[in-house]
């Protein structure tokens, strides 16, 4: 693992009315690293990722990335990242290819870069000739693969992937994990992945942040966490870290 930090979250807080969804969350992500945020439903994973992706403005806290403090809404910052939301759909009336072209056009200014990105996207999507079909007719796995391809084809320095395999069958899940790992290894870029699937976490993640009720309770490599809590798997490590089941 490289020691160069590409992103630092510092004291992020986000409240919705009287509910604190994210409470003083801090972590670092290094280059070439898959950093995972793990926790149960409603723990604050998605809100944290939405803040990192520039969709939600934090009530307080800072993001330092790529050598500077990120001004909220910065387009330069967003050009260096990409985001795959947890339950995102597709534009049902666009073809897969239309969608990839649209996404590439939002990231690049010159036609050559756009074409290259689309070419990468088509390969990453694995849709073959069906990339020319309307996305509304795709299976859930195909849609998810298309969205992942769009997120990675723009060569982000940091890919933010919220529950990338949620709702997918075993075959598609394994496929998605391979694509994510392959991307990070070949480009040296980083990824933040949220998940509540501990098996997936142990396969994919270099380091893991355990989050519960908006608070990060521990951070470490899967091995470090297993050793620290002296448990055979990350599920049990999580339970111990949060002080047992409610």
């Amino acid at each position: 693992m490289s020691s160069q930090v590409v992103l630092s979250a510092r004291g992020l807080v986000k409240k919705f009315g009287g509910v604190t969804a994210v409470n003083n969350v801090s972590f670092d992500v290094s280059s070439g690293e898959v950093f995972c945020i793990v926790g149960p439903n409603g723990a604050g994973k998605t809100t944290t990722l939405r803040i990192i992706a520039g969709i939600l403005e934090p009530d307080s806290g800072d993001i330092l990335a790529f050598g500077g403090k990120v001004q909220w809404g910065s387009i330069e910052y967003k050009r260096l990242i990409s985001y795959l939301p947890e339950d995102a759909g597709v534009y049902k009336n666009l073809t897969g290819l239309d969608y990839l072209k649209f996404m590439a056009s939002m990231y690049f200014d010159d036609s050559a870069s756009i074409e290259e990105a689309v070419e990468r996207g088509v390969k990453l999507s694995g849709l073959g000739v069906r990339v020319g079909d309307k996305a509304g007719g795709y299976s859930k796995g195909m849609k998810r693969r298309l969205l992942l391809a769009a997120a990675l084809m723009v060569n982000p320095k940091l890919a933010i992937l919220d529950e990338p395999t949620a709702g997918l069958d075993v075959v598609h899940s394994v496929d998605m994990r391979k694509v994510i790992l392959g991307y990070v290894k070949t480009t040296g870029s980083s990824a933040i992945v949220s998940s509540h699937n501990m098996l997936e976490v142990s396969y994919v993640c270099d380091r893991v942040a355990l989050i519960n009720k908006g608070v990060i309770v521990d951070v470490g490599t899967p091995g470090e966490l297993l050793e620290k809590y002296k448990v055979p798997n990350l599920e049990e490590a999580f339970i111990k870290a949060v002080g047992g089941l409610d």
Binding site: R50, E76, K78, R79, D87, A88, G89, Y91, L147
Partner: peptide
């Protein structure tokens, strides 16, 4: 309805 609003807001473009 298509749950694409988040994708839109994450794009490198101003509101």
């Amino acid at each position: 309805e298509a749950r694409t609003a988040e994708l839109l807001l994450a794009l490198p473009a101003s509101r």
